[in-house]
Design a protein around this nucleic acid. Structure first.
Lengths: 159, 159
DNA sequence: ACACTGACTAAAGCAGTGTGAAGTCAGCTA
DNA sequence: TAGCTGACTTCACACTGCTTTAGTCAGTGT
């Protein structure tokens, strides 16, 4: 049995579960609430793999990048992989894991929001679908394929 | 003319614009990179409007909530609105602005990610479409209606 | 007139996140 | 063998975010 609660409506008896250790939003935020973690994930999506790339492109200091990259590896968003370019010594490379890659909708929707609200010009870049060239945006859709607005959402507790 | 760049591919000449002041992801992160800001926005979506509600349900201290709510108002994600319940004095209420409400996909996709990766049980709650009762999830879709995977994305600079 | 409640603010202090400067270390390349 | 580069680490320090504790203040209800 599931109990539902209307979003943005009056505050029904949901006090219990939104708070506390079980809220997965809260847990997610713990991992990503630092500026540097977010910026590093952004660069990972943009294709950065080497330490030096992360440092330069996320514009972080080396100690900050190092600490945060370790944390992201530890939490399984990135993984360390040795590799060797011809004529170079072996190095480590940071690659997105499936768990890390699955965060992309978060980054993409944040980018979309930033482009819309924090830029006069619509932002410096946008995502396009390689297949057809059309602009890509993040949206909420139910399993029956309906696009869903905030006002049409219920929150169902999975008891 | 737009230049495109393959996501997660090799690092083409994108060094310039991802970094620096123009990146809207970076700007967005400045607003939301604190734990408390995220938690307060979550509660705003869940329907909190009063100061005391935000404090209790986001489990923040009053000073932290106060400081962050001011910041969110200042940045236009929430707005202060006086109201009066019968038999009560007038109070202020924090409401989502359009700008704030438009952040919902970010919160929703974070929740979805957390439910998938940080919980054994699939999380304590999920979003459902009021119309049909089906589970709602965040996804990337192009303007032609195609669901888009990370591997099928290009990043187009808006020059 | 007084207590009460909701909505804050002020001050003190700790922990975490960030910086710059400098040092380490491995393994090419000259 | 010596130098160079990429990938770090260590240190000292500043700043921020958050917490606890202790108020303030406005209006209601008694």
């Amino acid at each position: 049995m599931t109990k539902t609660l209307r979003m943005t409506g009056e505050l029904e008896p949901r006090d219990g579960w939104s708070a506390g250790a079980s809220c997965t939003i809260a847990k997610s935020v713990e991992l990503l609430s630092t500026r540097s973690a977010f910026l590093l994930m952004r660069e990972a999506f943009y294709g950065a793999t080497r330490f030096e790339e992360f440092v330069r492109r996320a514009e972080l200091s080396e100690p900050a990048a190092s600490a945060r990259l370790h944390e992201l590896v530890e939490h399984g968003l990135l993984e360390l992989e040795p590799y060797q370019e011809p004529g170079q010594r072996t190095r480590n490379r940071y690659r997105l894991t499936e768990k890390g890659a699955d965060l992309f909708p978060v980054i993409a929707s944040l980018m979309q929001w930033g482009n819309r609200w924090l830029s006069d010009t619509g932002g410096p870049a946008e995502l396009v679908h390689r297949g057809c060239g059309a602009v890509v945006h993040a949206e909420l859709r139910c399993e029956h394929g309906h696009a869903v607005e905030l006002a049409d959402l219920d929150l169902a507790a999975t008891t």
